[in-house]
């Protein structure tokens, strides 16, 4: 099991090298969403007793933790197809669980930084929520675990960069907009709500929002995220062998 530390350490070194650039790129989209949707368009809107800005920030936290955690898949692909660094891990005496764990934790670490950045940007707009609530951080932890595990698993079976980009376009982008990020799911027709119930981001948005407002959280959402994360992680471990040709 020790190998996960080496895999994680490598990702941390890369993160350290790219940190200033990564921080800048991480802040662009949330800042634009906050200005356009939160500040300009949503100035006079209130949802469920909160200003739209207050409603939006937990949604952005959920969305960014998803996209940044999922982004580890692209990093793995670059390592696999461009730099061939993945072969160094394949030739090392580390098992599949160690590899998947190291990469999953790396994705989760990136997600954590993205969340902190959104909280700081929110402060710039004068929004302070209940970030001291442990359930807020637990929901982020589980959400990033779900999407980081999914990314690691998919990165083992895709055959090119193009496949990876396609997955982001068809899976992550629709989820980002329909997972309760920008509007409450209760505004959609019941049949759509029923479908979106099975989308992990819907549960993450709901849990993160409730926790950040200091409201009672929905335990089934946490269980759903934990179960989905565990299933995706198991899939990732099984798929590591598929990356050997």
């Amino acid at each position: 099991m020790y190998g996960w530390l080496a895999v994680y350490y490598r990702e941390l070194l890369i993160l350290k090298r790219r940190f200033p650039k990564m921080l800048a790129s991480m802040s662009v989209s949330p800042l634009l969403y906050l200005i356009a949707f939160g500040y300009a368009m949503g100035k006079t809107v209130t949802i469920q007793g909160h200003t739209y800005m207050e409603f939006l920030i937990p949604g952005l936290v959920a969305m960014s933790s998803m996209t940044r955690a999922f982004g580890i898949g692209s990093e793995i692909n670059i390592s696999r197809f461009y730099w061939h660094i993945f072969e160094e891990f394949q030739a090392a005496p580390i098992n599949n669980i160690s590899y998947a764990l190291g990469e999953t934790l790396a994705g989760m670490t990136r997600a954590f930084f993205a969340v902190v950045l959104i909280i700081l940007l929110g402060l710039l707009f004068g929004v302070v929520l209940r970030y001291d609530n442990p359930m807020f951080w637990l929901a982020i932890f589980l959400n990033s675990f779900v999407f980081s595990s999914l990314a690691v698993g998919l990165a083992m079976i895709v055959k090119s960069h193009a496949d990876q980009a396609m997955l982001t376009s068809f899976v992550i982008t629709p989820m980002a907009f329909l997972g309760g990020t920008f509007f409450p799911l209760s505004r959609l027709p019941v049949w759509a709500q029923n479908i979106l119930y099975f989308v992990p981001l819907s549960h993450a948005s709901k849990a993160i929002r409730a926790a950040s407002f200091g409201e009672p959280v929905s335990l089934p959402s946490y269980l759903f995220l934990a179960g989905t994360g565990a299933a995706f992680f198991f899939m990732a471990v099984c798929f590591v062998n598929r990356a050997r040709d």
Partner: peptide
Amino acid sequence: LVPQTINLDQEL
């Protein structure tokens, strides 16, 4: 193993 393609971490 010394692979045919240099697979060092270029950023490290």
